[in-house]
């Protein structure tokens, strides 16, 4: 099997070294860029399977690089950011980043995110059937089965679950979900989201208090896994 290629764009040599060793020992091929400009050139000449992009670059801001990449690059982009910077993270996700990690991060977490992000690239675009753990979602018949048992969902609950499932391995921001499910007018009505995520979890999670499918990203949004 070909090794998946990952491009790291980060100006800190220590972080690049750490990522290089962690990723190569897990059978990925690592490409590196120490500036945004270099990163853009590398990505264009040799499009990787995944890009890890640091938001705090010295030459151009990570947001600019992200915007430039997203004009043509449609595979996963994983953002690295510092803690307590939800506004920045939300902006990056809304500009097309797939997922994010805050420094310091644990390697196991990083590898899990990379696996999910690469799997996401390989998903067929509009498969009507989605399987995730014990969940089976049929987008055409609009049914959900958990451990082969039919789960009764309201229409909104189903739409929400379908949106999550179609975006497995990606962090969806509150605003994005609200716009997709309830429309632009509900842009800031996050209490709708909290309530429906709550009722949905009760129906599809084994333990709604320790959800395994719909994971909260505090201050940012939700991820489905």
């Amino acid at each position: 099997m070909n090794k998946a290629e990952i491009l790291i764009i980060d100006d800190e040599p220590q972080i690049r070294k750490l990522l290089e060793i962690a990723l190569e020992s897990n059978d990925y091929k690592v490409l590196q860029a120490s500036s945004g400009k270099e990163g853009l050139v590398q990505a264009a000449t040799h499009p990787p399977e995944l890009i890890i992009l640091d938001l705090g670059l010295p030459d151009k801001s990570g947001h600019e690089i992200l915007k430039a990449l997203r004009t043509w690059y449609n595979k996963s982009i994983l953002i690295l950011s510092v803690q307590n910077n939800e506004t920045d993270i939300v902006a990056a996700l809304d500009a097309g980043a797939t997922d994010y990690l805050t420094k310091p991060f644990r390697t196991a977490e990083l590898l899990a995110r990379i696996r999910a992000a690469i799997r996401r690239n390989q998903l067929p675009d509009d498969s009507p059937q989605i399987q995730s753990g014990s969940l089976q979602i049929d987008l055409i018949a609009r049914t959900v089965k958990k451990n082969q048992m039919l789960v009764k969902l309201t229409s909104t609950e189903f739409n929400l679950l379908a949106l999550f499932a179609k975006n497995e391995g990606r962090v969806l921001t509150h605003q994005f979900i609200l716009k997709e499910i309830w429309g632009h007018a509900y842009y800031s009505e996050t209490q709708y989201l909290r309530v429906f995520v709550g009722t949905l979890r009760k129906k599809i999670e084994d333990n709604p208090n320790q959800p395994a499918h719909i994971i909260t990203e505090s201050g940012v949004g939700y991820r489905f896994s």
Binding site: E86, Q191, R194, G198, Q210, T216, G219
Partner: peptide, 17 residues
Amino acid sequence: IKRDWCDGNELIYAVIQ
């Protein structure tokens, strides 16, 4: 402070975890 709607039960569970 940035207030937004939040589920208190979920918040407590998250911190315990």
